[in-house]
C-alpha cells in the first residue's frame, strides 16, 4: 500500500472535481433546453400534451434520482444499447433537471398577470409574439432566482452518478478512501469541494430573490 500525502488526496479530488463541473454543466444546459421546450408546449399546447407534460414532471419529481439513473443505465441495455456511465448519467440528469425547471418556469409564466396576455392578444399579437415580447421578458425576471437556486440541486445531484460508476468527486472520494483509508479527511474534503461549488450559487440566488422582492414585484 502506497502512502498518500494530503496533497495527493487533494490533487486527485481536484482532478475528479472537473468531471463534477462538466457533468453539472451538461445536465443544466441540456435540462434548460428540454425544460424550455416543455414549458412552451405546456403553456400553449393541446390538453393531452399538457397532461402528458404534467405527468412527466410529476414522475420525475416523485421518484428517486438514483432510480432514474439506474433505469437509464439498465433501460438502455434492455433496448440493446451498451451505454457508458457518462451517457446514462448525462441523460438521466438532463431529464431530471428539465422536469424541475419546467415546473419552476411554468410557475413564473403563470405569475405574469393574465391581463398582460389579454392585452397583447387584443393588440393583435399572436401566441408566439405575445409570448416573446410580453410574457417571457416579465417571466424571465421572476425565473432567474429560483433557477440559480435549482442549479445547486443539479450539482448535488451529480454526486449520485458515482453509484453507476461515473468517476467524479464523490466516486474519487470513495476510491481514495479504499486506498488511503482516511475517511474523515477525505469525505470532509469532498464535502468542501461541493460546498465551494454550491455555496456561492446559493448566496447569489438569495441575493437575487431579495432584490426582486425589493423591486416590489410579486
Amino acid at each position: 500500500m502506497t502512502d498518500f500525502t494530503l496533497w495527493d488526496i487533494v490533487r486527485n479530488l481536484l482532478l475528479a472535481g472537473r468531471w463534477t463541473v462538466v457533468l453539472s454543466l451538461i445536465a443544466f444546459t441540456g435540462g434548460a433546453i428540454v425544460g424550455l421546450l416543455l414549458t412552451l408546449l405546456r403553456m400553449g399546447g393541446l390538453t393531452p400534451i399538457r397532461w402528458l407534460i404534467r405527468l412527466y414532471v410529476d414522475v420525475f419529481q416523485g421518484t428517486p434520482l438514483l432510480m432514474q439513473l439506474f433505469l437509464a443505465y439498465f433501460g438502455a441495455a434492455v433496448l440493446g444499447f451498451d451505454v457508458s456511465a457518462w451517457t446514462a448519467a448525462s441523460v438521466a440528469l438532463t431529464l431530471f433537471t428539465s422536469a424541475f425547471l419546467c415546473d419552476i418556469w411554468r410557475g413564473c409564466v403563470e405569475a405574469v398577470p393574465s391581463g398582460q396576455w389579454q392585452a397583447s392578444r387584443v393588440l393583435g399579437l399572436n401566441y408566439l409574439q405575445s409570448m416573446r415580447h410580453v410574457i417571457l421578458p416579465q417571466a424571465l425576471r421572476l425565473a432567474v432566482p429560483p433557477t440559480v437556486g435549482f442549479s445547486v440541486q443539479v450539482i448535488k445531484g451529480t454526486a449520485l452518478a458515482s453509484v453507476i460508476g461515473f468517476v467524479e468527486l464523490t466516486k474519487a472520494g470513495t476510491m481514495l478512501n479504499n486506498a488511503a483509508f482516511a475517511p474523515f479527511t477525505i469525505f470532509a474534503l469532498v464535502a468542501l469541494g461541493y460546498f465551494i461549488l454550491c455555496y456561492p450559487l446559493s448566496r447569489y440566488a438569495r441575493h437575487l430573490e431579495k432584490k426582486l422582492y425589493g423591486a416590489g414585484i410579486r
Partner: peptide, 23 residues
Amino acid sequence: VEIVRNTPFIVQLFFLYFGLPAL
C-alpha cells in the same frame, strides 16, 4: 444549516458512516 444545504446527501452519509468510526 448552510453545510447541509450545500453538500450532497450521499457525501453527508459517507462522512458519518465512514468518518465517525475512524474517529
